[in-house]
Design a protein around this nucleic acid. Structure first.
Length: 424
RNA sequence: GGACAGGUGGCCGAGUGGUUGAAGGCACCGGUCUCGAAAACCGGCAUACCGGCAACGGUAUCGUGAGUUCGAAUCUCACCCUGUCCGCCA
């Protein structure tokens, strides 16, 4: 969420931000109304408060007369009349405030200057690691390999829940457990993160804090119980941990990591891109979340992204880092790197991580602040997060990239202590 | 799920209809004292918003929302949360 003051004096800045995302056409009507709405909001407040001040005076006068034993009937009648006026003005204020709030909730974050303009065709590959296999033709796709090895049971997942719900069996289930432990150990022992285990069901306020709501309710699994949702990422509960709190400067930067299952409806159609483990409704992920000061948040993004890349290097999977163009950058994000890993049999690069700095966009929504120095006013923190990593596509990539001539799948050295064997 | 008890400022904790934004304490900031520190003493110390170049003025905020009233931290209702006991349960 943006600072409401931008609607007054930085509308051009907001317009430019929307233009860079390619959203100007869509959002121009909204922004055109912004100035009027904001002026109306302030007018309503001013008028309301003037009447409230009047009422407070009258009320005090009543008290004084009562005390002195004088008659106050006239004043009481006046107070009653003011009360009716106030009720009307209050309704108007609420309406104006809600209108501005709705508008603010609709506007995505403004990307950093170094983020390229335009849609995803302007995404930039900024670095890469390892060498993708070129013999994909001769490899077995992960969905077939998974069935062959008996570690993926897609049919029964579909039976139990629906398409896009995966059952891992035997060695596959153990692989999930191994990945989880390997990643969490790496981040806690080498990268300095505190491990958290968090709820996967959260309330509406929490979903709003990180920016999923109100705009993306359709992407979410909502529970029948009023206002509860399954999380699409551990980012949601972990970032909200410090909602409505003021952190000490000495707490920053701070890193939290958490494993969680992630639930996404992603109303996508079936087809090649959704086959096997490519796009599923429930997947597992280890998430990194960082709280930083505005001064360091940009550097923190590099650090966070490197930490995610480290996982891929330990898994010996070739990857590339993309700097997303403004139009492809998530709603709340100011700058995002995607990490993609190659699946040679599928012949596609798969997104396995998305590392973002949100500047103060989430912090303002969730009201997460820090005190720069004792006695100073609190400021909003900057939040960051990144997947490190999402399992399902990693598993797909492992099954394809580490496929050996004899049909077995090699387990990378760093994972072997957790998995217990050298092959799947 | 049921029965009680409770939610007040950064923290603890008074306060049951009228200068209560809210006693007192702690913490914090400034000062006196001290070689220095501690202690003691003095003073300061909420947040957000509106108007104003500013000085400053105003409004709101005692879990949330609605209601009663000229006036609500205080009374009424609903909801949320916490604690304790009971029930149920992996």
């Amino acid at each position: 969420m943006h600072d409401i003051r931008l609607l007054r004096d930085q509308l051009d800045h907001l317009r430019e931000g929307m233009r860079r995302r390619g959203k100007l056409e869509e959002l121009a009507p909204v922004l055109d109304r912004a100035e009027t709405l904001e002026r109306e909001r302030r007018t309503a407040i001013t008028e309301l408060e003037a009447q409230q001040a009047r009422r407070n005076k009258v009320t005090q006068e009543v008290a004084q007369r009562r005390k002195a034993g004088d008659d106050a009937a006239e004043l009481i009648a006046e107070g009653r009349a003011i009360g009716e006026t106030i009720a009307g003005l209050e309704a108007r204020r609420q309406e104006a405030e809600a209108a501005v709030q709705r508008m603010l909730y609709e506007l995505p974050n403004i990307t950093l200057p170094e983020v390229p303009e335009g849609d995803e065709s302007n995404n930039r590959i900024v670095s890469s690691w390892g060498t993708p296999r070129t013999d994909g033709e001769s490899l077995t796709a992960h969905w077939d390999k998974g069935a062959e090895l008996g570690i993926l049971d897609l049919a029964r997942g579909a039976k139990v829940s629906g398409s896009g719900f995966i059952v891992y069996r035997g060695a596959g289930a153990k692989l999930v457990r191994a990945l989880m432990n390997m990643m969490l150990d790496l981040h806690t022992t080498e990268h300095g993160y505190e491990e958290c285990w968090v709820p996967v069901v959260v309330n509406r306020t929490t979903m709003t804090g990180t920016g999923q709501l109100p705009k993306f309710e359709d992407d979410m699994y909502a529970l029948n119980e009023e206002g509860m949702f399954l999380i699409p990422t551990a980012e949601v509960p972990v970032t909200n941990l410090y909602r409505d709190e003021i952190l000490e400067l000495s707490d920053l930067p701070r890193g939290l990591c958490a494993y969680s299952p992630c639930f996404r409806r992603e109303a996508g159609s079936a087809g090649k891109d959704t086959r096997g483990l490519l796009r599923v409704h429930q997947f597992d992920k280890v998430e990194l979340v960082r709280y930083a000061t505005p001064e360091t948040s940009r550097d923190e993004l590099e650090r966070l992204t490197r930490e995610a890349e480290t996982v891929l290097e330990r898994l010996e999977l070739p990857y590339r880092r993309l700097l997303l163009a403004a139009g492809d950058t998530g709603f709340s994000s100011a700058m995002t790197y995607d990490l993609e890993v190659y699946a040679p049999a599928v012949g596609k690069w798969l997104e396995v991580s998305s590392c973002s700095v949100f500047t103060d966009f989430q912090a303002r929504r969730a009201n997460i602040r820090y005190r720069p120095a004792p006695g100073e006013k609190p400021r909003f923190v900057h939040t960051l997060n990144g997947s490190a990593l999402a399992f399902s596509r990693i598993i797909a990539s492992i099954m394809e990239h580490h496929q050996q001539a004899d049909g077995t799948v090699r387990i990378p050295a760093a994972l072997q202590p957790y998995y217990g064997r050298a092959t799947l």
